[in-house]
Design a binder for these strands. Sequence first.
DNA 1: TTAAGGTACTTTGTATTGCATAGTACCTAA
DNA 2: TTAGGTACTATGCAATACAAAGTACCTTAA
Lengths: 115, 115
Amino acid sequence: MKIENTKAQMRKGLLELCILSLLAQKDAYVSDLIFDLKQSQMIVVEGTLYPLLTRLKNAGLLNYRWEESKTGPPRKYYGLTDEGKKVQQELLQSWDELHQAIDHIIHAKPRTNLK
Amino acid sequence: MKIENTKAQMRKGLLELCILSLLAQKDAYVSDLIFDLKQSQMIVVEGTLYPLLTRLKNAGLLNYRWEESKTGPPRKYYGLTDEGKKVQQELLQSWDELHQAIDHIIHAKPRTNLK
DNA sequence: TTAAGGTACTTTGTATTGCATAGTACCTAA
DNA sequence: TTAGGTACTATGCAATACAAAGTACCTTAA
């Protein structure tokens, strides 16, 4: 559906900020992240997160360690690098500017026609 | 630059909402829109807006009329169709949900590790 | 010991849109 | 008639969310 498609477009660029923000608070593996995102009404699936995490790790923003699990295979726990923390702050700033801009546009009063 | 690139990604899907919202208030042509967006600290150029407006018109959300100008060529003034108004409201709802989700994620307290 | 189910991860290709750029056309003024 | 400014058209690229198919590891049961 069109609106669903636009919602997916809206998440472009913002999902990275969400992931970095969650990992700024605490190391996590993919199921943790999916759970936390869901708590905030952001529904994302594994097929989206694994490639994103790989991309962020390759960009030097994340590191990971393997941790045994009692219930299944070992898990990859991701955490932020120092660079990741820096980029997370920068993206927060970008997000702040963006959403203020959008709120301003959405709630703007009709401009007077001075032309 | 990486942050600039991510900012562009963040605008995906949101620019449509901005344009529909501006046109919900008042018909406009491209320079009007660029000006209004700039007032809200959203910098967008013509090469971005013309294709977007064409896409929205072809999707049935906009209509336009030509208006003579005293200073140059005629201008295309865009306005919302009824369908456009409806979609604008739906996108507003999507935006509201998205930004609440993101704010929730950004400001979440670290979860307790109950596992 | 083997097999099945569950969990975790990898890989790949598609769809979509913001953006940049090159080009065309119309208008006014000199 | 020409040049500059304004307005618009067209096209292709880059980047990411997503879907889907696949592989691998672990536990449990037979």
